[in-house]
Structures are given as C-alpha cells and as structure tokens.
Simulated scan of single mutants.
Amino acid sequence: MSKKPKRIYLTFLEQPSSLGDVAFLPTDPLTNQGVERLRSYTKIEKIISKDETDFVQALKIAKFTSEAWGHDGFNSNPKKQDALTILKLAEKGASFACVQFASVFVQLCQSVGIPARVLNVTTKNPGLGSSGHGHVTAEYFDNQLCKWVWIDPQIHAYALSRNIPLSYNELAELIVDGKKTIY
C-alpha cells in the first residue's frame, strides 16, 4: 500500500493584478486566524475528507464554489477580495464574476493545505471589443500526480486525457494539436 505523499505548501503566491493586493494569503495557511475563520464558516472539513485524493478534494471544493452564487460578469468588485467576505456577500444575494470564483476556490484549497493558483486567460487580442475577451480560472497542485491540474471553479469544469487530469497548458497543447479530451 503506497503512502500518501506529504503536502507541499506555498510560501509565496503572486496574484494577478485584477485581484488587487490580497493580504489574505498567509505564508502558513493552516495556522492563520483568517484561514481558520474561513474553514469554520464553510465547514470545509465536512465537504472533503483527508482520505480522498487531491483531485477528489479539489473537485468537491470547485463544486462548492460553483454553487455558492450566480455568475455576474458585469458586477463591481468587492473592496475586500478574501473568500470569507465574498462568501458572506454571496449569502446575502450578491453575485460575482469569474475572478471571484477563482479566488475563493484558491483560498479554500490553500486553507486545507492544497497549493492553488489563479490563472488569467485571454484571447489573442484582448484589447479588441468591450468584453468577453478573457476569463479567470485556477489550478491546484496535485501531490499524487506531482503536477498542476486545471479546474474552472465557476462552471466546475476540468479536463482529462486517458483518465488523467490535465494542467491548463496540457489542455491547451491538446487543443492546438487537435486531440480529444474529456471534460
């Protein structure tokens, strides 16, 4: 029986400028008071099990995030971008754009020791037109697979090739090469 590898933890994460300064993400996420409040508020330990694979845990966190509020691509960003603030506003009826889905997913993953990062995706010419030329999504680091894995927490989407979860770059390469993937 193989032993589950030890988790790796981020010591630094540069968030995209669209999120502003996110002071929420601590060096040691498991002992930070803000993170403890987030875990308590979301009851994240009841959503995931430590016995599950990183992939299953990340999928459950993405599902929780995708169901937390409705998408609104034309809303104003809240002043505070931490997951707890966003989730409390959503509980009061607020809706948010893809950037908040990604931010909440990443912060929830990190709150349980899963390294995660926000990804900004744009079209070839994002300056053309008024909207719809970009998207914000996420990846988490899967310790069993020893690689980053893409999940879109807004729509609870991911990609597989030969039953192996793909990173965003692996997915992009398969699309460019015209190969099939399973979503």
Rank of each mutant, 00 (worst) to 15 (best):
E173Y: 06
W69T: 08
V35G: 00
I182W: 13
H71Y: 15
G93I: 12
R39A: 08
S95I: 12
F96C: 03
T31K: 06
S49V: 06
V99D: 06
E14R: 07
Q57T: 06
A172M: 13
F74K: 03
T137V: 15
W150T: 01
I47A: 03
K50A: 14
N163Y: 04
G20S: 07
G127C: 04
W69V: 04
L108D: 05
F74Y: 14
K43T: 04
T27F: 13
F96Q: 02
E67K: 06
A23Q: 12
T53Q: 02
A97S: 12
G132A: 10
A23D: 15
N169G: 03
Q81T: 03
V106G: 01
F74D: 12
G93Q: 11
K3Y: 03
A172R: 11
G134C: 11
L160R: 02
A138N: 11
R7W: 02
I151L: 15
H71E: 07
T137P: 05
D82V: 00
Y41P: 02
D142C: 15
T181W: 12
Q33K: 05
S66R: 03
P153C: 06
I47C: 05
Y183T: 06
S76F: 14
A68C: 13
I155Q: 11
I44H: 02
P29C: 05
E36A: 07
G132I: 10
A97G: 07
V99G: 00
D152S: 10
A159G: 07
I155H: 08
P153H: 08
V99K: 04
K92W: 02
T31H: 04
F12D: 10
K43L: 08
V35Q: 06
D28G: 00
D28S: 05
F55I: 03
S17Y: 09
A138L: 12
